[in-house]
Design a protein around this nucleic acid. Sequence first.
DNA 1: ACTCCTTTGTTACCAAAATCACTATCCTTA
DNA 2: TAAGGATAGTGATTTTGGTAACAAAGGAGT
Lengths: 209, 209
Amino acid sequence: MKAYKIPEATVIRLSIYSRQLSNLRKAGVETVSSEEIANSVGVSSAQVRKDLAYFGEFGTRGVGYRVDELLGNLTKILGLTKEWNLAIIGAGKLGSALALYEGFRQRGFSIRAIVDVDHKRVGLDLAGVVVDPLDRLETLIKERDIKIGIITVPAAEAQRVTDRLVDAGVPAVLNFSPQVLRVPPHVVLRNVDLAVNLKVLSFNLSHNS
Amino acid sequence: MKAYKIPEATVIRLSIYSRQLSNLRKAGVETVSSEEIANSVGVSSAQVRKDLAYFGEFGTRGVGYRVDELLGNLTKILGLTKEWNLAIIGAGKLGSALALYEGFRQRGFSIRAIVDVDHKRVGLDLAGVVVDPLDRLETLIKERDIKIGIITVPAAEAQRVTDRLVDAGVPAVLNFSPQVLRVPPHVVLRNVDLAVNLKVLSFNLSHNS
DNA sequence: ACTCCTTTGTTACCAAAATCACTATCCTTA
DNA sequence: TAAGGATAGTGATTTTGGTAACAAAGGAGT
């Protein structure tokens, strides 16, 4: 599991493969070919094989891949054998929706803290997690071993809370705010920008036709 | 504004530039250099210039770009001079959060319909838009000239409602469900997969250190 | 055991995107 | 009005990611 520079596109596809394999396993399928995976995801079979080749040999020629085995390997590759503790920063509309959303409460990830500046929101119970005051951020991060911080505060506050997360030792940030964030190189950052997504659609609508 | 094959990464950056320029304009800044834009976004100045070069010459050498002028051009390029009508399919946690979220109610985009199968949700008022029954989907699309459909239904229903959107003539889909969607080539599709984002972070956390 | 069929793993090739380096042009000021 | 400094625009180069083709390897059937 070495393989130094893995393209981000590959990692994204791997996580989609893992989801499809999970579905196949539920459906009782035992083996699958790169071609079948490719079709279900909408890429080429060569792409699938190449993505997997970064990490080893998981199939048998002439046969394909054993679903449970490949899924196990992808789970290891993606680091999903352990549980990652999450904190949501900002219990507004988006933050609470994410807290309640099932898609976020899945194997491998556990929402352990939700914080907000607004005292009216403190004390609310969101699917079993009680909203704490923002002051307690650093304490909670340490006490609950938070590894991923999810930013759902307004743009104006986003950098400030991110700095606090980073200073408190959180190694990964998922940013939902419409704000470019600065983090030191050892911190992993991903952006989910809803406005940008709409603008990209707008661009394509304006030019494709 | 011809420029046939524009990299998606470029379009994403352009929409981020436009946001930064918007902030600059609010701050009263009149001119800006590619270097300054680059610094505020975290890319190289050459990248900024190259992205803009796909569409024309917007700056003056030795000086930089006029903020309002460049913003105007980006607005045109991104197709944000007209209003795009949105429909949210699925008024669950995520769908209603998006409906209420300010980030979605911004210049250029207007939520015109929200639908759900669940009759308990029909009739709810979400920031001025009343939830309609899913049956009315096709009617609403035509009546309200919906151009972008936002999928926030469970994975199992995602392809079905997408097909209905496509058949009703919706040219763009923003998919929040954890499901690979098939659309014909003339339909623009973007995916915002929360689980995938977490998995990519997990991968990086597991390998970066 | 031999042959054929299938499908993986891998290499070589190609395309696309990012970076770099250079040139052209404008503004300022002496 | 000439010169210097700044910065946009652009062509060349490098890097990266994707495609395609093929050799290696396993299984099935005769």
